[in-house]
Write a protein that binds this DNA or RNA. Structure first.
Lengths: 227, 227
DNA sequence: AATTATTTTTAGGCCAATCTAAAAATATAT
DNA sequence: ATATATTTTTAGATTGGCCTAAAAATAATT
């Protein structure tokens, strides 16, 4: 992965790549200039500029007015950024005792540190984690993501114990709300009853019960409890 | 220290500050434009540009043609950079098992990560180290350096067991040379004989003997062995 | 003190990344 | 299909950081 694309990019270029990577995760079609501008909190004009530059560096395929898709090179670079970001998040939570809602911004800086050796040693130091503190998969050094069977909490049957394995929302507010509900990765949940009239759900959270809104539940990934 | 100077600087600005800090460590007089240019591997003209900018930000006192001295603000910022650099070096060596000759470049990047909370937690995680892997003191959060009685190896009496506490040279070549001589921080040394005709010294290194050049010895800091 | 050498600053330009405003292309709606 | 709205690109300006070359200030030498 590293040797595949050892060119140094500016932090800005890396951030554009990551934004495009993120935007093309859902559907695999070309990403629009405007979407990137929104994601990067900048103007469409700046995006067009940057797309030209990244296109010249063969990091993406760019057709005027038609948006962009990452090239293989661009994809590998982005994946490596995601790898670094998530490994640093694990470090911050597991070793420095940060909460899961505090780590994103710092990892956003740390992911730009350029040293393959550092990343690999960090990975080893953390015992090769497969998921970050939010349950997102950490790509391996060769760019492979660990897949996992998971579903959204609202789509699970009643009376079926499940384990929390991830979240779909990463905002500080949402994460801290989950903290208050005592919902964290590895927590056992069980849907007890749904109240369709107000979109709320009664769940067992560990050994107590809780009412949660289905808006919250829709952002929690779970897997069937194998125990 | 942090609250005293919470302005964000560019990486370049931070590097200039660090360079000036380093150059004013030996003697306390004003640092010349040329000296900074040499240290930063850039032109005198660029330095003049930057000095104006840093001066406007009140980080240093700049008098045309007369060089610069850091202001209190500038001094604190530099000290904090040194603190971060050295803490990260400890992390890299102690936790990620890097050798002492490998860590400078990576720490050079990590020192620019901006998060007081991160630094303080890192400090705690490393058990508040007072010295980095080369024996250089790590300033505390409020900017104080731990002082230590030490002398240069060549200036120690014969037959006096001493402990290695630091190095004056940080080049990769020098550090690896010391590795080959089995000389590392904490190692016990004892000068057995000096050969003035070729400037070499016979020393006891731990439980064996070694010939080392006085050029090497002049770059080793030791303290009298208290045991 | 006058000349020479060195250091430092100024002047002018370049590049990456950004912006706003306007023009061009594409998409939507009647 | 024509008009309107939206998206995207171009044009031109700005800023930080860098450069070279030339001018100005200071230091060293005789």
């Amino acid at each position: 992965m590293y040797n595949a694309c050892r060119m140094k990019l500016s932090i800005t270029e890396e951030n554009y790549l990551k934004a495009i990577f993120k935007l093309s995760e859902r559907d695999n079609k070309a990403v629009s200039t405007n979407a990137i501008a929104r994601q990067m909190q900048t103007s469409a004009a700046s995006v067009t500029d940057m797309l030209k530059r990244l296109s010249e560096k063969k990091l993406l395929k760019y057709t005027k007015y038609k948006g962009v898709t990452l090239s293989e090179k661009g994809g590998k670079l982005s994946t490596n950024l995601v790898r670094k970001h998530r490994l640093w998040e694990v470090f911050l939570v597991d070793k420095l005792n940060f909460r899961w809602d505090e780590v994103h911004e710092i990892a956003e800086q740390l992911e730009h540190i350029d040293s393959p050796d550092l990343v690999n040693r960090l990975d080893a130091f953390l015992n090769h984690p497969k998921f970050d503190p939010h349950g997102d998969p950490i790509p391996s050094a060769d760019g492979k993501f660990t897949l996992r069977s998971q579903q959204i909490l609202t789509e699970v049957d009643h009376k079926l114990p499940v384990l929390v394995v991830g979240v779909r929302e990463h905002s500080v507010a949402f994460l801290r709300h989950l903290d208050e509900l005592d919902i964290h990765l590895g927590q056992q949940l069980e849907i007890l009853e749904r109240y369709d009239y107000d979109d709320s759900i009664r769940v067992r959270v560990g050994d107590h019960q809780q009412m949660i809104s289905s808006k919250v539940a829709r952002n929690i990934f779970v897997k069937i409890n194998p125990s």
